[in-house]
Amino acid sequence: MKVLSKSISLFVVCLIVITIWWIGTDGFTGFTQETARVNKLIEEKPMIMPITLEDSKGRMYTFHELKGRRLFLTFIYTSCGTVCPQLEKNMQQVYESLPREILDEKIMFLTISFDPDRDTVEVLDTYRQYFGSDGETWRMARIANKLELKELLDAFGVIVLPDRYGGFTHNSAFYYVDENGRLTNVLDYKDIEGAQAFLHNELLGSEMK
């Protein structure tokens, strides 16, 4: 009898512990909130909303006007000295791996600044030149309206925390929006080859159909 009650309690406790772990880590897949966020986005595929962008040439347009073109997005601020330049350098490598005609017709690279106060049109225009962006097939833009900016950051799960030194701590990734305006993939920005392979498959693969 003692042994029985012992094993029952042991079993129950194991069950409780495993359940808590299972729920807390989405079935042992998300051990940081970042992986959990990415998994959730890929599963839910949110629509991109009609938010107004202002690009490095001072043009204003909404995401809906870009419909029909796939988007390859990153979020940065230009005063950033750590992750953002690396993110953009990696984006440049992905950008340069694609053939010209694909860049002209099918996909647009878009870097969005979440620091509209400092990142003016002129600042963005200077910044884009560091990474070989032409301002057309790879645009850099800001969202001047802070409410709209917050809406977009929330929808994509981009968390931006101001630090004490006038900078931001933020999570980084490559975001891919398909031709219907749906965010369908979030890619590791450090895995350049993975992102290249994904885009080649997505863009050149569909051409053969």
């Binding site: 042991l10 406790v13 512990v17 808590i20 807390g24 880590t25 940081t32």
Partner: peptide
């Protein structure tokens, strides 16, 4: 042993960054 498993299982759970 039930107690210990509970303690260790949950203590490590709270060490996961997420």
């Amino acid at each position: 042993w039930s107690n210990i498993i509970f303690v260790l299982g949950l203590l490590s759970f709270w060490m996961v960054p997420r």
